[in-house]
Design a protein around this nucleic acid. Structure first.
Length: 606
RNA sequence: GCGCCCUUAGCUCAGUUGGAUAGAGCAACAGCCUUCUAAGCUGUGGGUCGGUGGUUCGAGUCCACCAGGGCGCGCCA
């Protein structure tokens, strides 16, 4: 990971806002000598919405007024005097209730362009998370069938979040938890066994089989047919009775279960690869259960007095028909902020899913992570407080558990909901979706909404080539830039317009407002990426890129009205190189953002 | 009954963690193609930020209550 090589000092030079904040703090300490640290921490330098207020503003005077026992306006006046002398500052002025507005000298923005060109896609990296180990667990679909659209959002959000945290300097591990234990997997094995019996020509009908087995036939999808065929090919009729009926489970169930899971996981790996998701660690629940980790973890909690035998109250508001009080092994999660204590063992003494999951998270803690992030479906919201409690208990409060909840995605086609029924087999698989719209459109679109807001995914709109479709709009900006650079290679020489060569261009001629606006946007990328990482909100990247693309298209279009404003000017090579440097830096920044999202930039759109 | 999430322009959504006059796209209206990609760009109109109180220099953002929508609530995973 080369970004780890970028030192703090280098990173500071990348973020003009962070650099200005340092200057503001120096100025503030000169005015308020005994400035408390907690006040200093609240000082911000942020971009201004209204360009008339200058490029950036600081709240320093207002947040420090009370501690300094001075009026905000007075402190602001002092800051203005000090900052007015600072390098890169064209103008500083006090405004409103105590803001200090700062306008940078355009040279400060111009100086950023060679930095971007030399830094490449690492532009926007920071060291915020240096030394902090984060585990991001996502997808974690049960291996009971192919991945479908419901899994897709979590996969994309988790993957992009992990990339984003890595960009912010965290040491990130991407992980997948295979839920290959429990009743569902047993039911899956029975279903695969049915396909096996069919493959060897059983006389049983599907309903006869279903009536004969515990719990009935639950998974009827055709995707298990290949599993049945594989079992028949490898084992002949040896897993059935002589009459080709249901044999005693103990001769076949382990074999069928492991074969089925292996084949399903192979399929899931293929789906993930198609989606561009590559996790480093796959943890098996079955292996965890076999290791006895749940009991070990329960013992560990018991040693801290956090385990007891008790009876829970019936859930309120529901009509608990079959409810009866039974003693269970409970975890005192209420001591760590949960609503009720949670069962770790069922009344029959076997471990609950939660017990295994605590053991799994304990394992992650043992592997040295400081922050555990689970990307989950919104229907798992109720599970978050108990897991947070468990992580707190296991780590003595030193490690953090976080959850990113993904709300449901409604699939539409031309504005009409696509009906999905798992039983009828009409649900859309991830593979189908990727075949239809492609990895990049899926990933980008999934990141155009905050994860905890419901979203509509219109199969027609994500392929539309209009501004309405952000995927297209951003890709188009990148393609246009590449197109201009290709044309430039004809006029100039290919060597003269490499990113390295453009980094040495004289940029003095970049003075027009739309050019400065684009440079201002570029300068906001580091703080945008860092803020998105800290907020765990990868969708901010999509919005940033959309705004960046908009700034670029605006600039491009000026050449429509006035030919002297085009990027390529045959008789003015110096200006041409300056403009090329600007848009090449824009392309670099777009690629930097797309890399976080896992979207491949396009070179042309013909 | 309790807990979590959501409510911003006619529609779909942002809103830089409490900052100044709340922003985009779509839809509506008016413009821009002999051109580095018009698959684009410019402009106009459109708001009681669900409601009522509170916290403070300052609230769409934080707190309380209320209304509406979604999700969840022992021995499923």
């Amino acid at each position: 990971m080369t970004h780890a090589l970028i030192s703090k000092r280098d990173t500071m030079t990348h973020d003009l806002f962070a650099r200005m904040r340092e200057q503001v703090l120096i100025a503030l300490r000169a005015i308020v000598p005994d400035l408390p640290d907690d006040i200093a921490a609240r000082v911000e330098v942020t971009p201004n919405r209204d360009p008339a207020h200058g490029d950036m503003a600081t709240n320093a005077a207002m947040v420090s007024a009370k501690a300094a026992r001075q009026a905000p306006a007075k402190i602001a006046a002092g800051l203005v005097t000090y900052l007015g002398e600072a390098p890169d500052v064209a103008e500083a002025s006090a405004a409103g209730p105590g803001f200090v507005n700062i306008t940078l000298d355009p040279s400060a923005y111009r100086a950023l362009i060679p930095v971007i060109l030399r830094t490449g896609e690492h532009y926007g990296n920071s060291t915020t998370g240096a030394g902090i180990k984060v585990n991001v667990e996502y997808v974690s679909a049960n291996p009971t069938g192919p991945m479908h659209i419901g899994h897709c959002r979590g996969a994309v959000v988790g993957d992009a979040l992990a990339n984003l945290l890595a960009k912010a300097g965290f040491e990130v591990t991407k992980e997948y938890y295979i839920n290959d234990a429990g009743n569902q997997v047993t039911a899956l094995a029975w279903a695969a066994y049915w396909r096996y019996l069919q493959a060897i020509g059983t006389p049983l009908s599907e309903e006869e089989f279903s009536d004969e087995i515990p719990g009935g036939l639950q998974y009827r999808g055709e995707y298990l047919i290949p599993v049945g065929n594989a079992l028949a090919a490898n084992h002949g009729t040896s897993l059935a009775t002589n009459e080709l009926g249901v044999a005693a489970p103990d001769i076949w169930i382990e074999l069928v279960r492991s074969t089925t899971i292996d084949m399903m996981m192979t399929e899931i790996h293929t789906d993930l690869a198609q989606l561009g998701v590559q996790q480093q660690i796959f943890s098996s629940e079955r292996a965890l259960v076999a290791s006895g980790a749940a009991d070990t973890t329960i013992d560990r909690l018991a040693a801290d007095g956090l385990i007891y035998e008790g009876v829970l109250e019936p859930p309120k508001g529901k009509t608990p028909d079959d409810w009866e009080p039974r003693p269970q092994t409970l975890f005192r999660s209420t001591q760590f902020g949960d609503d009720v204590d949670r069962p770790l063992r069922k009344s029959d003494g076997s471990n609950t899913y939660f017990a295994n999951d605590i053991a799994y998270h304990a394992d992650k803690l043992d592997r040295g992570y400081d922050i555990l992030i689970d990307v989950l479906g919104a229907d798992h919201g109720g599970y978050v407080p108990r897991m947070r409690a468990a992580v707190k208990a296991l780590s003595g409060g030193t490690k953090k558990f976080e959850a990113v909840l993904c709300q449901i995605v409604h699939i539409l086609r031309g504005g009409v909901p696509v009906r999905m029924s798992k039983r009828a087999g009409t649900y859309v698989t991830l593979s189908d979706l990727l075949d239809e719209v492609g990895k990049d459109a899926v990933r980008f679109t999934m990141l155009t909404r905050n994860a905890d807001a419901q979203m509509e995914f219109d199969l027609d709109k994500v392929l539309a080539t209009t501004r309405e479709n952000p995927v297209f709009y951003v890709q188009y900006a990148h393609a246009r830039i590449r197109s201009v650079l290709r044309a430039a290679a004809e006029i100039l020489t290919p060597e003269s317009i490499t990113e390295t060569a453009l980094a040495d261009a004289d940029l003095e001629s970049l003075q027009a407002e739309p050019e400065l606006a684009l440079m201002r946007r570029l300068s906001a990328w580091p703080r945008t990426a860092e803020g998105a990482a800290l907020a765990r909100e990868p969708h901010r990247i999509a919005f940033f890129l959309y705004d960046l693309a908009s700034d670029f298209h605006m600039l491009w279009n000026r050449g429509k009205d006035d030919a002297t404003l085009r990027f390529l000017q045959k008789d003015r090579p110096a200006e041409t190189l300056a403009r090329l440097a600007l848009i090449a830096a824009t392309a670099v920044t777009i690629r930097s953002g797309l890399a976080v999202m896992g979207v491949t930039p396009v070179e042309e759109m013909r």
